[in-house]
Write a protein that binds this DNA or RNA. Structure first.
Length: 741
DNA sequence: GACCTGCTGCGGGGTG
């Protein structure tokens, strides 16, 4: 049951403040706060009551922490809670450091201990909490995992008097392996102390509050109090600038930086960023580290040329912590204007104060992240939120790719903006079994208890826990598999213990994370290594890819050795490997179809973007795409079904099962070895066979090892997980029906 | 031609 409180009555508001402990009230006065903010007012009563979970959703970071911790500290001050503790979970170490200094300032005089705990915190500080576990523990999920592994025996008494669990940036956990791990840890804490503890989620505005509450406590029965802070009448200013890719300007020989020759439209985008953003503080999201470096360098050069102090700083995951912290400090300090060019590193995290605008260069990775980025534009003073988007498209020639003719990037961005304005965001991926994380949790549970029975493990993790999609039969197969892999073994009394390999894994500190750094495959042709390629999408034998500016055919995929064997390919129109960013949701492709079909021109497009959209629509009707589903271009056929990547990947796998070389190219499926008639025939056969068996399709996928502990899973288990999380039988079957109509 | 997050215990040596 979920209650969404949007407009509390005034009488409730005025009373909330007086429910707080007198010392807390004094602290609030001393801050010079005349009133509590909306969310802070409304959080007091339900948190003090402590009989429900609570989600506090508000756009800006400021205020949410206090909304949770004013009543929490109030509770900690009461006599009976002298020895109680509260766990605050954060996805980032930086956030823990930031919150620690803010909280200490409040808690020092209240005599409440605050314990920061993450990988950079010294062992002596950690043992302080272990000796006297009271006050507020600020910790990462990975460090909680390490507590279970290294102090398993102590868990029940450590959390004996646990009052609340606060999860910050809740939205960042939803739908990921790390989120699955978090759910399991929360559940295991409650199992250890044999009672429920109210969970409090702090989040940016999220699309579906129902899903967020199910994530926070996936038992399907508990009530969650929702506190959704309504941002009233916030004005949004949008601009989408189109650019046509052109030849780079000639660089004279002997010039110092002759090696850097970007295409001209990137320089134009850089010049516009410089012209419009200089003199104010902004965030520029550039989608890749490469582009971040390019723009940061370009913008810095412009400052030097004009004899101005540099205002532009880069920020991404490969930069050292020091450089990133310098950039964060610079933008936080409002005495000089500073703009940061970043990847998704600054989508969340420490409060950087208000910025004048957000720039997005290239197609945003998702509507949800677009919303998240926009939310970083701080808006304390009621100023409008400003979003500038920069999209470049290729100049068209007779040989241009279909996606280029259709201006797919621009149209996708327009579609995404329309969905953003409708307040639609991608729901988190559902249905995954998360077997990789189940491997981790199984090993951790054994470490915690010194051994468990199969029934105990099933009850804690699956039956009552977050891995509820794994049934008894599959769990048995799972345990047998772990036994075969020597991750676990069974003692003579039936107790499950670590096996030889399991022991080694658990005893290494890398065990605590549920996610792995991206796997890299080595690309080999003959006996030459061409380079490495990060793999997060299926690469199938027979598909084509471009690497190092040349065309290759994938001859062999060796998942064990992490090698992809290539041979030079000729002819055809090979797809560019990697393609569009991320997984595009069905809803976005459907909206793109609407954008192509309509004649309405959005007002937020500049002149060039309008021209590109007009071109896209002309080509859309030239190929009769409002009704046609198969379009041939040279020897390649393109299948359009206007659905997301999960459906396209499934359909492509179905076609491959009929001997047709099909690859998901994003906007369409490309087929290289069949005529439209042959494709039609194959589609009819597939339709007659009914909804596809995703398990069988998954079995034919070469490299299903994506998550950290996948490499220990049998092909059978891996195929089940893959089918559940990566394929969409229903969607593909419906798309098939629509294509043949 | 995406991107991001995180990590123990222990021993040895140095400093205050």
């Amino acid at each position: 049951m979920t209650r969404i409180v949007l407009h509390p009555s005034n009488s409730e508001e005025s009373q909330a403040f007086f429910l707080l402990d007198e010392k807390i009230r004094r602290w609030v006065w001393e801050q010079g706060w005349t009133v509590l903010r909306d969310a802070q007012e409304r959080a007091v009563a339900p948190i003090l009551a402590g009989d429900t979970d609570v989600i506090i959703a508000a756009a800006t970071a400021a205020g949410k922490t206090e909304a949770a911790f004013l009543p929490i500290c109030s509770k900690l001050l009461s006599k009976e809670n002298q020895n109680s503790c509260v766990v605050y979970l954060s996805p980032l170490k930086a956030l823990i450091n930031d919150q620690f200094s803010r909280m200490e300032q409040l808690c020092e005089r209240l005599d409440i201990a605050v314990h920061p705990w993450h990988g950079d915190i010294s062992g002596s500080k950690k043992s302080r909490f272990l000796k006297k576990p009271n006050g507020i523990l600020l910790i990462t999920p990975e460090s909680v995992e390490s507590l279970f592994v290294n102090h398993g025996n102590a868990i029940p008494q450590l959390f004996e008097n646990l009052l609340y669990i606060v999860v910050d940036e809740l939205h960042s956990f939803i739908g990921s392996e790390r989120g699955q791990q978090l759910q399991s840890l929360l559940h295991r804490i409650e199992c250890a102390i044999k009672r429920k503890v109210p969970r409090i989620g702090l989040s940016a505005t999220i699309g579906d509050m129902q899903l967020a509450s199910q994530f926070l406590r996936p038992d399907g029965v508990s009530e969650t109090e929702m506190i959704v802070s309504t941002t009233t009448g916030q004005e949004l200013q949008l601009l989408l600038k189109g650019y046509l890719q052109k030849q780079p300007p000639l660089v004279l020989a002997g010039e110092a930086e002759a090696d850097l020759q970007p295409d001209g439209s990137l320089l134009d985008i850089g010049d516009n960023l410089f012209k419009t953003l200089r003199g104010s503080s902004n965030l520029i999201f550039a989608n890749s580290r490469n582009r971040v470096e390019f723009f940061a360098d370009l913008l810095r050069k412009r400052c030097v040329e004009q004899q101005l102090p540099n205002e532009f700083w880069p920020h991404h995951g490969s930069l050292s912590k020091e450089l990133r912290e310098d950039a964060e400090a610079a933008i936080k300090d409002k005495s000089c204007p500073v703009s940061i060019v970043c990847t998704s590193t600054l989508e969340m995290g420490i409060d950087i104060g208000s910025v004048a605008s957000i720039a997005q260069v290239g197609v945003p990775p998702s509507v949800a992240s677009m919303r998240q980025r926009l939310g970083r534009s701080g808006r304390r003073d009621g100023a409008p939120a400003v979003l500038r988007m920069y999209i470049q498209e290729d100049a068209l020639t007779e040989k241009s790719d279909l996606a280029d003719c259709l201006r797919a990037g621009l149209v996708q961005t327009v579609a995404m903006v329309r969905l953003l304005l409708e307040k639609w965001y991608e729901p988190p991926p559902a249905g995954g079994l998360h077997l990789s994380t189940l491997v981790q949790q199984m090993l951790s549970l054994i470490a915690q208890c010194g051994g468990v029975t199969a029934v105990q493990a099933y009850n804690v993790l699956c039956k009552n826990g977050p891995f509820s999609l794994v049934g008894q039969q599959m769990f048995t197969a799972f345990l047998r598999n772990l036994g075969e892999q020597r991750l676990i073994m069974q003692a003579s009394d039936g107790l499950l213990l670590h096996g030889q390999i399991g022991e080694r894994i658990v005893n290494h500190y890398s065990f605590y994370t549920a996610f792995s750094t991206v796997e890299e495959y080595r690309l080999v042709s003959g006996d030459r290594t061409l380079g490495t390629l990060p793999i997060d999408r299926p690469v199938t034998e027979g598909s084509l890819l471009i690497f190092g500016g040349r065309r290759w055919l994938v001859e062999e995929v060796d998942s064990a050795k992490k090698v992809i064997v290539l041979k030079p390919s000729k002819g055809g129109a090979p797809p560019v490997f990697g393609g569009q960013a991320g997984w595009v949701h069905d809803r976005i492709r459907q909206e793109m179809f609407v954008v192509y079909s309509e004649s309405h021109v959005p007002t937020f497009l500049d002149a060039k973007a309008k021209t590109l959209l007009a071109e896209a629509r002309v080509n859309f009707s030239r190929f009769s795409l409002e009704s046609k589903r198969i379009v041939t271009q040279g020897s390649t056929a393109h299948l359009f079904c206007w659905m997301g990547d999960r459906v396209l990947d499934t359909l492509a796998a179905m076609l491959r099962s009929k001997g047709i070389k099909a690859t998901n190219e994003g906007i369409a499926i490309a087929v290289f070895n069949a005529s439209p008639v042959e494709i039609q025939d194959a589609l009819r056969v597939l339709l007659a066979e009914g909804k596809p068996d995703t398990y069988e399709l998954a079995r034919s996928v070469e490299n299903k090892v994506c998550q950290k502990y996948d490499l220990f899973l049998s092909d059978d288990l891996l195929s089940r997980d893959y089918a559940a999380s990566k394929l969409d039988a229903e969607g593909a079957y419906n798309a098939l029906k629509n294509m043949l109509n």
